[in-house]
């Protein structure tokens, strides 16, 4: 499968989706002008991956900030991961960032994928 690798910028997150090396992560800041357009490649990648997924997929979110339009797309990504067997979410938040912790908890209540929370 193709590797999706996007460098982070001041308003878009770093994204690495690499099934060979088993790296699945979205990190940094997300406030793109058009969140649907920005995240579409991630959704497309997952559509392809779900039919050829590894027995275990640990998908990491290590976000410092995301806007509300991105939150809608994060939910779409999590919903795709519901269809990936053996998927698990690793939700990172800065140790003093209660809002990011709470955001992760809310997502975990909205989808049927196991979440693990970790501070950084």
């Amino acid at each position: 499968m193709n590797i999706l690798n996007l460098e982070g910028t001041e308003d878009t997150p770093k994204i690495v989706l690499d099934s060979q090396n088993k790296i699945y992560e979205i990190s940094g800041r997300s406030l793109p002008e058009d969140s649907a357009e920005f995240f579409q490649p991630v959704l497309d990648w997952l559509d392809e991956y779900k039919d050829a997924s590894a027995p275990e997929t640990v998908f990491e979110f290590k976000l410092e900030y995301f806007n509300t339009a991105s939150s809608k797309l994060i939910l779409d990504i999590l919903s795709k991961l519901e269809e990936v067997e053996g998927a698990k979410i690793m939700w990172y938040f800065h140790e003093d960032d209660e809002d990011m912790e709470e955001a992760g908890e809310e997502f975990s209540e909205l989808v049927d994928v196991p979440f693990e929370f970790k501070t950084y």
Partner: peptide, 9 residues
């Protein structure tokens, strides 16, 4: 999402 990409949130 609205046509302008807003989530209404």
């Amino acid at each position: 999402l609205s046509s302008k990409g807003g989530a209404g949130l």
